[in-house]
Design a protein around this nucleic acid. Structure first.
Lengths: 365, 365
DNA sequence: CTGAAAGCGCTTACAG
DNA sequence: CTGAAAGCGCTTACAG
């Protein structure tokens, strides 16, 4: 008689099997069928909840015949275990958090795609937020991740604050793209300095003497390293002038800055855009002024984008494999979860330079 | 004496405040500090867990002085309530699931960005998956959402199966972009038929007599409606020939199909690409063959992409506001959660045609 | 081989 | 005004 213990009866007497064919009438027929719990499964199979749990998870012994009976009952009821309840009991998590700057930027979207792919492969769900460059939103998202008890977080950080916050709360953290906590957090980055240096050397070899680097920030490792690579390459050559120009975060801001830069009498003959957004702004400004690429102006970009292979000539760029970056970040995250005490690691991915025709010797003076 | 009931002692005697300054030594110093629970907060404030809960949630009465004491204790301990435990108890969910086809496609990435933005505004976290067009992955993701007990799911469906599965499990569903369950599920779409018709009429007015529509599928409302709009416009004119050509899902497949189409002696003088991926393939094939746009070939696209405003001439396109689509889907989702019994609704968003110069009268025969 | 009991971290009527 | 108790849906030693 234990199986008929009193409990609130479902609206229609007994819970309707969710996959019964009459379910086609919409989201909620009169009364909203309660979701099946393990208790419903146990009752249907006339076993205890303990046995039902053992049968369904496969942990602990249960007689084969009983196991089959329980599984059939679960299927018939459309039973899906509550992940939250399971995690609460087991004190483990099966989800990872991802926090990027802007999902509308293809770089971040691809990064998220890579993280999602690898997470799913390992049986983890992905929680995703973007912060639009706002530190407040970034922290809010981090708090949400802590509340959700994610196993770990992959993020493109805006400062050291959020990584530290997460680490303090016992959440594994991997910084991607840029790095604020070297030595403390794991990170996955590309070879910013080396790639920027090689890209710049290409311009120098063509004979450019007035070069400009347009970038959006120098507080992050991305800006600093790309700038360092550019500067080092220029310094190694002789008699070259190099300007480093700060632009904003949007295409329009970059366009305005480039418009001014390209209007100078001693305008640079080669411009290095520190990312795809800046490259777009510069490209548009050049076109607006009627400057031909590459005859009047050489343009290169750190970070590739779809349009760079469609305009004529295409734009020579450092191609970062953002999907691979996301995948590597997940790998690092799980390594960290398995080895919480291991020293922090920085993984550097190589990147390729795609020569496309947007560079040429400088125009005659 | 009640507050000192025996319980497993944390590694270091008393739980270290997570925001103590010595926390800088990394993710896990010797012993891994246990995460603070409401019990820790209650003990620190020498009140019961009930009172601590009331003080922190703001539900139910608690003396002002006590409330402050509890809140200070929570802050000092870096307490973040376990969302899973809270949801389990309250039987509510504070997250929404999003399931799109391919995060690397800017349309879906922007859609997800819109969903994330609106969800966060309402205090909900976003769980995100992509299925890469695979029905198996789509179902797996849906199962994960059910297990996670999300409040609702926004998805770009591959068939009717997953929406029905979710609805059966009591999860609110909103279909976006295309619609498989009209009358049963809510949906947010654009005016595919009308926009396609207007876009086609533009081509007809220029005098084109041989037109082609290149599309990837006709099983979805997107393909069907765009095709219907195209066909209706052509039929309304007189003495026009229209081909409807099926291409694959990738740029390369579209390029191969377009290569063949444009090599025909009676090649179309105007091509309508049913989405941005197809448009890219056609554009590349045209360039490869040395066909000038718009002198030799007029090209229009349903669905805008960044490159379409950068190539010369730009590509005339129907601009869908993917972010707005995602935002509207979240609005519909919450309406559904609040009114489970309301009749299913389809929201149609208007879309604009951006004239950019890729169309002209057909070349002389 | 199986079931009763305890407990994960919360919230919420209810008693005092 | 506050605390003890019950319970959300699970899993897991442990007793039999």
């Amino acid at each position: 008689m234990d199986t008929v213990t009193a409990r609130p009866a479902p609206a229609a007497g007994s819970p309707a099997p969710p996959d019964a064919s009459q379910a086609s009438s919409g989201a909620s027929p009169a009364g909203v069928a309660r979701r099946a719990t393990i208790r419903d499964v146990a009752d249907a199979a006339t076993v205890s909840r303990s046995t039902a749990s053992r049968a369904l998870t496969g942990r602990g012994y249960v007689a084969p015949a009983v196991r089959d009976r329980v599984r059939r009952a679960a299927t018939a009821l459309g039973y899906v275990p509550d992940a939250g309840a399971r995690n609460l009991r087991q004190q483990v998590s099966r989800s990872v958090g991802v926090l990027v700057s802007d999902l509308r930027n293809s770089f971040y979207a691809e990064l998220a795609a890579g993280v999602g792919q690898q997470s799913r492969r390992r049986g983890y769900a992905m929680m995703l937020s973007d912060d639009n460059g706002s530190p407040e939103r970034e922290l809010e998202a981090a708090e949400a991740f802590v509340a959700l008890r994610v196993a770990g977080v992959v993020l493109t950080p805006l400062s050291a604050a959020v990584s530290q916050y997460l680490a303090r709360h016992g959440v594994a953290v991997v910084e991607v793209d840029r790095q604020f906590c070297p030595g403390t957090c794991d990170a996955v980055v590309v070879d910013n300095r080396g790639s920027a240096e090689r890209l710049t050397q290409g311009l120098l070899r063509l004979g450019h003497r007035r070069l400009a680097l347009v970038l959006d920030e120098t507080d992050w490792t991305t800006g600093r390293e790309r700038s360092a690579g550019f500067t080092a390459a220029v310094a190694a050559a002789e008699g070259r002038e190099a300007a480093v120009v700060g632009a904003g975060w949007s295409v329009e801001e970059a366009r305005a800055v480039a418009r001014e830069l390209l209007a100078r009498p001693d305008r640079p003959t080669a411009v290095f855009a520190a990312n795809n957004v800046l490259a777009e702004g510069i490209w548009r400004a050049a076109e607006e002024r009627g400057l031909r690429i590459p005859e009047d102006l050489s343009l290169v970009s750190f970070d590739d984008a779809a349009w760079m292979s469609m305009v004529r000539p295409g734009v020579t760029a450092v191609a970062q494999d953002a999907v691979a970056l996301g995948e590597a970040a997940v790998a690092a995250l799980f390594d960290r979860v398995e080895q919480p005490g291991a020293p922090a690691r920085t993984v550097t991915l190589s990147s390729r330079i795609l020569e496309r025709g947007s560079t040429a010797p400088p125009p005659p003076a």
